[in-house]
Amino acid sequence: MTALLSTEELCMYFGGVRAVDRVNLAVAEGELRCLIGPNGAGKSTFFRCLTGQYRPTAGRIRWRGRDITGADSFAIARLGIGIKTQVPSLFEGLTVVESVILAQRRRHGEADARRRAMAVLERLGIAGLAARVVAQLAHGQRQLVELAMVVAPAPDLILLDEPTAGMSVEETGRAATLIRELNRAHALVVVEHDMQFIKAIASTVTVFHQGRVLVEDSVARVLADPRVHDVYLGRSIAMPGTEGG
């Protein structure tokens, strides 16, 4: 079966730095995939290649088998890929409901868009914020507003870059529940480095290290893997396909 999103030998180099190095990844329909790794592992650069922010140096990105390498962000979004950035990227001067309407109105008329926007806000538990101006919101609320904007057009796949960044323990717990719920309707790729959060959403995990995929397995096996412990502790390890550590 064709993967929803896949990469083939994807590379992103900055001069001599190989931020992403020959990464092969396939995300199936309805899957919840976590990309983890210590700081500098290349997961955020890989994410930016997927979202069109960076044009890969080499390799291919495919959406349902179609080559989308180097496509612009807006074209990638139009395919049915929702993108949530690490630092909430919002329309500061607009109200919450206006933002969500804008997020989905490519497909719906005004009245329908407003009704759908309110339904999305209710689903995320922030309907009470609908009339508030985005700039006035607290960080946790801003994260949820951005998520509402991402979910609003009903994308097939949602890419989340560190969705719990800056959240309290309680908010992180709620986010995990929310992500599991979102996974009932959308495939998700979550870039994260909070292991507790990864455990809470329990999925297939791809571990990045030095721009490459170190291991890809279930969360339980990944967490039991001594190599993963080593890279998180900053120990040098031998990468597959390379000589020495």
Partner: peptide, 20 residues
């Protein structure tokens, strides 16, 4: 409305599928 949204945050508008 999209023009105003782009003024507010060009990147977000792009990520929503608008060709700014």
């Amino acid at each position: 409305r999209v023009v105003v949204a782009i003024r507010e945050n060009e990147r977000r508008a792009e990520l929503l599928g608008y060709d700014v």
